[in-house]
Computed example of a mutant assay.
Amino acid sequence: MGKFDDVLAFYQTPTTQFQLESFRKRVKDFFENNPAFNDHLSVVHSVKSRLKDVNHLEEKLVRKENEKGTQITTANLFNEITDLIGVRVLHLYFDQFGIIHNEIMKQIENGEWTLFEPPKAYTWDPDMSEEFEKLGINSNRKDSYTSVHYVIKPNPKENVFCCEIQVRTLFEEIWGEIDHSINYPVKTDSIACAEQLKVLSKLASTGTRLADSIFRSHNDHKKNES
């Protein structure tokens, strides 16, 4: 028998899967069908979601134990592994992020969701970091990508599963998909690939900034016409 067989069996029970899947659908639906995101150009471009693959979960349990000495059991699984449900929200340009953030925080304020921990922004870009801080989001230095993470629960009960929401632009998603293909679950030992990924991350952020500039120019042009 494997060391984590009990935990993995608990995760795969029909009851656990049903609870996780139900909340995944609700969170996904919130972003896909919320009228606050619908204008002449949808604020939310697309939404991806998944339940954590059992093999990836086992790999994470091993990493948690080896790196942090954390013993994962059926009793603490939901508190220790906070991305059993993952929802990724993609938008075209940065100016749309504030709308998405405000709608998420409304869900927290009205009690529909509860935060497991404060939202965190990850970015290498000092300008982006400043923008996140203005919204009250703690910014963390990351060598490559820019993304904001929210860990939410369906209610404030102590032992309830979490869902990790990631919000990023399409440009950042392209970088993330390429990085994930090369660096997950094991990081590449190719120095050349690592350096190229850093360059690509800078190009992705440049693309996001250019998209902001384009839409600001477009909006100014429409105002002048009217």
Score class of each variant (00 low, 15 high):
His91Phe: 15
Tyr184Thr: 02
Leu210Glu: 10
His101Pro: 03
His56Gly: 04
Arg50Cys: 08
Tyr145Gly: 11
His45Gly: 02
Asn38Asp: 01
Phe10Leu: 05
Leu92Phe: 14
Thr169Ser: 15
Lys120Met: 14
Leu115Met: 15
Met1His: 03
Asp189Leu: 08
Phe161Ser: 15
Val27Ile: 15
Thr73Lys: 01
Lys106Cys: 01
Ile100Ala: 06
Gly98Met: 00
Glu65Gln: 14
Lys3Ser: 00
Ser190Arg: 02
Asp95Val: 07
Asp125His: 10
Asp53Val: 02
Val148Pro: 08
Asn183Arg: 13
Val44Asp: 05
Ala211Pro: 02
Ile100Asn: 08
Glu103Thr: 03
Glu173Thr: 05
Gly86Arg: 09
Thr123Tyr: 05
Gly86Gln: 06
Lys28Arg: 12
Asn155Ser: 14
Glu59Tyr: 13
Glu173Met: 07
Glu172Arg: 10
Leu200Ser: 01
Ile191Asn: 09
Gln196Leu: 13
Gln166Thr: 08
Leu135Cys: 10
Leu84His: 07
Tyr122Leu: 12
Ala75Thr: 10
Lys52Glu: 03
Ile165Ser: 06
Asn110Thr: 05
Ser129Cys: 09
Val167Asn: 09
Cys162Ser: 15
Arg63Cys: 00
Pro118Cys: 03
Arg63Glu: 11
Val7Leu: 00
Ser22Cys: 03
Asp127Cys: 04
Asp95Tyr: 05
Asn55Ala: 04
Val7Ile: 11
Pro156Leu: 02
Ser144Ala: 13
Lys60Cys: 10
Val43Pro: 00
Leu197Glu: 03
Arg50Gln: 11
Asn76Gln: 04
Phe161Leu: 09
Ser181Tyr: 05
Lys142Ser: 15
Val47His: 02
Met105Pro: 04
Lys222Met: 14
His180Gln: 12
Ser42Cys: 03
Thr82Val: 15
Arg88Gln: 14
Ala36Met: 06
Thr208Met: 15
Met1Arg: 03
Ser42Tyr: 04
Arg26Val: 05
Phe171Leu: 04
Asp143Phe: 06
Phe215Tyr: 13
Ser190Cys: 04
Ala204Cys: 14
Ile165Phe: 04
Asp220Ser: 12
Val54Ser: 14
Glu112Val: 11
Arg50Lys: 14
Gln71Ile: 13
Leu84Trp: 04
Thr206Ala: 14
Pro14Glu: 13
Ile191Tyr: 01
Arg63Ala: 12
Tyr11Leu: 06
Gln96Tyr: 10
Leu203Asn: 08
Val7Thr: 01
Glu130Tyr: 06
Gln71Pro: 00
Ser42Glu: 04
Phe132Gly: 10
Ser181Phe: 03
Glu173Lys: 12
Thr70Phe: 05
Cys162Gly: 11
Ala211Gly: 00
Glu65Ala: 09
Asn155Pro: 05
Glu225Gln: 13
Ala192Asp: 09
Val186Asp: 08
Lys52Ile: 04
Lys52Trp: 07
Glu80Asn: 10
Leu61Phe: 03
Leu115Ile: 07
Asp189Val: 02
Ser42Ile: 00
Leu84Arg: 05
Ala36Ser: 12
Pro35Gln: 04
Asn33Met: 01
Arg50Thr: 06
Ser22Phe: 04
His45Thr: 13
Tyr150Glu: 09
Ser147Arg: 08
Leu115Pro: 11
Ser205Tyr: 12
Gln12Pro: 05
Ala121Pro: 07
Gln107Met: 08
Ser205Ile: 03
Thr123Lys: 09
Leu115Val: 06
Pro14Ala: 09
